[in-house]
Design a protein around this nucleic acid. Structure first.
Lengths: 254, 254
DNA sequence: ACTTGTGAAGATATTCACAGCG
DNA sequence: CGCTGTGAATATCTTCACAAGT
């Protein structure tokens, strides 16, 4: 290509690795806690422990942001809070809409972590006319007919989808058409979006399944060690009245 | 805290990469949908599209499980559903307790994805005496005084924490002491657990912050002509950057 | 001393590209 | 042919270990 915009992968951050970006909020939370206790400086070792990572990783992460520490001393807490906040774009206000005000949507609306850090719930939207007008977390739920107007009037660029999976894709498309370019999806569906729109998904059942995988492996390891005949391995398995279930067909094609 | 997972099994079949494990539930969901539509076989290309990954990755992932496909044809849907379910440990029943029945806990209790796939909500637990006895999602909430008994009686090994952050660590410790070895943590806290206990965390505010980071970058790119404050001089490494064409359509900024 | 910042090494993950088999 | 399965190449991420500052 000779002219036009430089080809830049949408997911590539400005030199900051994605894995690092994903940890910055973690550091920020730990730093905020230190800040509230008026701790002036912190070493990479201490901060890493508070954030649950190791110190080499933390230092490497910070090195992508710049040299914000002082050798022999550590990092200035307030300064780092500011720098990370700025890097994450939290020094500005992000209006957010939540679409789908069921249990989960209500939980998110009530979630303190939203408001506390640059995010403001600009609107709650639901397709059920019964919901419209009700108050959730002190905010009046609006009907989805008004979705486009709400997004434009509030300059919303981040949308949260907490609808049933069946309507998630279509909600997503309306959000994007109205100007939303970042979506946090709680519906267990793969959303397809045009290039330039970011989607992150939070999937409760996937997390549980990953845990189950490791849990099963633990049980298997124990059984292997105790060589089958010992009852010890059996103690820590699931038990009791097995539910109806029977969901899995034991098909064995050749 | 060194998690001693440096153990490399000599047998080649049991070393499924973590990244692959994390995608298996995705494949499983896509396959289940196909199964319900009575689709008999599926190609890596089709399945990959449905799961939102690329086909090479999917085939590589499946190769860790074994050779379950047929060249020239694709994968048998029912068979794959069974194999992945087994690999993830979903052919057995996993009783789960949810601790902290606020908005989020209630949302999880009502979440259909739980029951549908090997997980059974064995108990809902809350510290508030007012909550005890109430019905949530058809299950009677029990007081946290009984946590240990409930876990032991039901053989629970997976716990979900949806409490306020202040009590999450102490709830975690009680869970672990009672026999729980896998924890899904929704509280915005770093949990410290003994070796051998798995923790996964779901953090709503972190996801939003990551979105904000990318959103900010998008906005910056639009007005990127007078930038001069970037502390990171992007030292391009070997960036021959062959055009991966085909798949990266240019998009018009809305 | 003490702790950061970082090249280099090592470990994982992703993608390519094609041999091999139905 | 078409599509899987996989070694090899690449890219990304983590950890090591120590030089460079304060």
């Amino acid at each position: 290509m000779a002219t036009g915009r430089t080809h830049r992968p949408a997911t590539r951050s400005r030199g900051i690795p994605e894995a690092t970006v994903a940890r910055l909020p973690l550091y920020l939370r730990a730093l905020t806690a230190l800040s509230e206790r008026s701790v002036p400086t912190v070493s990479s070792e201490e901060l890493a422990a508070a954030a649950g990572v190791n110190s080499a990783k933390l230092r490497k992460d910070f090195s992508y942001l710049g040299s914000y520490g002082t050798r022999g001393v550590g990092y200035d807490v307030e300064y780092l809070v500011y720098q990370i906040s700025r890097e994450l774009g939290l020094t500005q206000d992000w209006p957010v809409v939540i679409v789908g005000i069921g249990n989960l949507g209500a939980a998110l609306a009530n979630y303190g972590g939203f408001a506390s850090r640059g995010f403001r719930v600009a609107a709650l939207i639901d397709a059920d006319p019964e919901m419209a007008g009700k108050q959730v977390a002190g905010i009046t739920v609006q009907h989805s007919d008004d979705m486009e107007r709400i997004i434009e009037e509030n300059g919303v660029s981040i949308g949260v989808i907490t609808t049933p999976p069946g309507v998630a894709q279509q909600v997503c498309e309306r959000l994007v058409a109205a100007g939303v370019t970042s979506i946090l999806n709680f519906a267990p569906t793969v959303l397809s979006v045009p290039d330039g729109v970011d989607v992150r998904k939070v999937d409760l059942s996937i997390e549980l399944q990953i845990l189950a995988f490791h849990e099963q492996r633990k049980a298997g390891e124990e059984a292997a060690l105790t060589d089958g005949s010992s009852p010890v391995a059996a103690t820590r398995k699931q038990s009791a009245d097995k539910g109806p279930d029977g969901d899995v067909p034991a098909v064995m094609p050749a």
